[in-house]
Design a protein around this nucleic acid. Structure first.
Length: 301
RNA sequence: GGUUCCUUGGCCGAGUGGUUAGGUACCGGUCUGCAAAACCGUUUACAGCAGUUCGAAUCUGCUAGGAACCU
């Protein structure tokens, strides 16, 4: 079945040129851009997240850029809900909406859906976390053995405390095992999805990343990091570019090392993104605008 | 020129005769709720040469490179 309305996803590793391509594409198709970047959403940190510039934002309307504060709670599920609510509005002016970003889990949430889970109350959240902080991983496993043994036997990485604590807090909140709430099914969306990805040669990508770090420093990344230093405990600042500079402010890392590690950690992040993309067989790899238009099915240009 | 000390994998670093230290990077992977997160796997050694020994990164000698002090 084919729908007229299409969501064009432009993704790829950080530094691959997604932003520029998405803007060109949006101008060509007369559409707006949905940013799928979990960090560009925070208005306090545009430099280190390579958020679209004011000029770029002026050329094409963007959604989900600078729309959150660092201490706001957010998740892939929130993103799915908000994007699904927004899409019909975007399709009033164009048959195409463009989603651009590198937060793969956010993109998956929109394209494939995410199971409905109860919102965890603060008390359960703290209780689950306390099991971990006081008793460690083993204590969490012990509790899960009672509340959700199925999850324990099927979870792919039992050393990942974040996932186990999450399974525990959901099980506590729902009163039923977390695993029983997971359907494993992909949602069928009532619109077309074309998933495009940029994938430059690693040598070129790494070179661009290295240069971008220098540019960020020139643009004042250190001041930006300094201005949010007092919020460094927030998860939203557990982010490449900030955690390294915070270590420098703490005095536990010198400046050269901090800057070098920003580059290194950005390269690592890019590789994780590529690993994620590899198993998605819907992805069409492209190199530029012409490729993209062809993949969308627009060859008459 | 003399004396003493040092040389371990891309980098850091433990190990004074007998199971692959470890960390980090690189490379690869996992992924349904803060995901730029969290987690997992593999690979790369003992400066060189010759000896002692059943067995040497560990002992001896020589060579190369380096450090400190002395003249």
């Amino acid at each position: 079945m084919t729908h007229r309305k299409t969501l064009v996803v432009v993704t790829g590793p950080t530094g691959s040129g997604k932003t520029d391509l998405a803007i060109e594409l949006a101008e060509r198709l007369g559409s707006e851009i949905i940013s799928a970047d979990s960090r560009q959403m925070y208005r306090e940190i545009p430099i280190g997240t390579a958020a679209p510039t004011p000029e770029q934002l002026n050329r094409v309307r963007h959604h989900f850029v600078g729309n959150l504060s660092l201490d706001d709670y957010y998740s892939a599920a929130c993103f799915e809900e908000e994007v699904l609510a927004l899409l019909p509005h975007l399709w009033k002016q164009s048959d195409y909406a463009i989603m651009c970003g590198g937060s793969m889990m956010y993109i998956d949430a929109v394209c494939n859906g995410i199971d409905q889970l109860p919102t965890v109350s603060d008390s359960n959240r703290l209780a689950a976390l306390e099991v971990y902080t006081t008793g460690g991983l083993d204590a969490v496993k012990e509790r899960l053995a009672k509340l959700d043994p199925m999850y324990l036997s099927t979870a792919p990485d039992l050393n990942n405390h974040k996932r186990l604590v999450h399974a525990l807090e959901i099980s506590m909140e729902a009163g039923v095992p977390y695993s029983s709430l997971l359907t494993g099914r992909h949602a069928q969306r009532p619109f077309n999805i074309v998933k495009l990805a940029l994938n430059p040669l690693r040598e070129i990508l790494f070179d661009r990343i290295n240069r971008r770090v220098d540019i960020m420093i020139e643009q004042g990344l250190e001041d930006e990091a300094q201005s949010v230093y007092n919020l460094r405990h927030l998860n939203s600042l557990n982010t490449v570019g900030y955690k390294e500079l915070f270590a420098m402010f703490d005095g536990s890392m010198d400046r050269d090392t901090a800057i070098a590690r920003i580059g290194k950690n950005t390269r690592v992040y890019a590789k994780k993104q590529l690993t994620w993309l590899k198993r998605d067989n819907r992805v069409v790899y492209i190199t530029g605008l012409d490729d993209a238009l062809r993949a969308i099915g627009l060859t008459d240009f």
